[in-house]
Simulated scan of single mutants.
Amino acid sequence: MDESGIRRRGLMLVLSSPSGAGKTTISREILKEDGNLILSVSATTRPKRPGERDGVDYHFVDESAFRNMADSGELLEHAQVFDRYYGTPRKPVEDALSAGRDVLFDIDWQGTQQLSGKMSKDLVRIFILPPSQDELERRLHTRAQDSPDVVKSRMEKAADEMSHWDAYDYIIVNEQLERSVEQVRSILTAERLRRDRLLGLEDFVHRLRTTG
């Protein structure tokens, strides 16, 4: 808080995209350059992989603990992926927002819908689109070197994911990475200045109008 007495409530920045459209790369660039933005750490029931750290990469819990978290309302969103569960713990997010820190979410449309139902006023939703189907397919081949069948399956899933574009506040066509990163930065800057995120603003303006 500065001498104005104004402080800001943090926001929840969601980036979603079909696989291969560039969401993860954009997220890394934004996090690297913005000290007030932190990545949401999910809880999961999948086993820890070599090199992963509990509380940094994921909160690793067993299925019973995860179900208890979901049933007691401790998760903002959660989903089952094959035989594993993933979800966003509520408390770390709410603590960050109260402290004026922003939280980045790398989640899909279903997770975004759950967040929208619980904390819509804090949410900023961005969907990343590829410039074309051909470019998306090229990126999938280049990135993972998957078999043609796997790429075809990813392309079919991408078509379904892109059908939900209209559930987002902002759309970015990721044709050139640096430009897309700058567009996300611009959105973040503007959203941080929204009147309803600035706490103490009414008192500050009142003082300006009455001083002297």
Rank of each mutant, 00 (worst) to 15 (best):
M1V: 06
M1Q: 09
G5L: 11
G5F: 02
I6H: 05
G10N: 01
L11A: 05
M12I: 08
V14H: 08
L15K: 08
P18C: 01
P18W: 13
S19W: 05
G22D: 03
K23H: 13
K23Y: 12
T24Q: 02
I26M: 14
E29T: 07
K32Y: 09
K32T: 05
K32S: 08
E33S: 05
G35S: 01
N36L: 06
L37N: 11
L39S: 12
L39D: 03
S40R: 11
S40C: 02
S42H: 02
P47K: 07
R49N: 15
R49Y: 15
P50F: 13
P50L: 06
P50H: 02
E52Y: 13
E52L: 08
E52T: 08
E52N: 14
G55P: 12
V56S: 10
H59F: 15
V61K: 14
D62F: 14
F66M: 08
M69S: 03
D71E: 15
D71Y: 03
E74C: 12
L75W: 04
E77Y: 11
Q80S: 04
V81H: 08
D83V: 06
R84M: 12
R84S: 06
R84F: 06
Y86S: 02
E94I: 04
L97P: 06
A99T: 07
A99N: 12
R101I: 04
D102C: 07
L104I: 10
W109H: 05
Q110D: 00
T112R: 03
Q113S: 02
Q113T: 15
Q114S: 01
S116T: 02
G117E: 02
G117S: 04
G117V: 00
K118P: 08
K118H: 10
M119V: 15
D122E: 15
L123A: 05
L123E: 12
S132Y: 07
Q133E: 06
Q133V: 12
D134M: 06
D134V: 14
L136T: 04
L140D: 00
L140Q: 03
L140A: 04
R143N: 10
Q145H: 01
Q145S: 03
P148F: 10
V150N: 01
V151P: 08
R154H: 02
R154V: 13
M155R: 06
M155T: 13
D160N: 10
E161G: 14
S163T: 10
H164V: 07
A167I: 11
D169C: 08
Y170K: 03
I171C: 13
I172W: 08
V173D: 09
N174E: 10
Q176R: 14
R179E: 11
S180F: 00
E182I: 14
I187C: 03
I187F: 14
L188I: 00
L188D: 00
T189V: 03
E191R: 06
R194Q: 12
D196V: 11
R197E: 01
R197K: 15
E202C: 13
F204D: 01
V205P: 00
R207Y: 02
T211Q: 11
G212A: 13
G212Y: 01
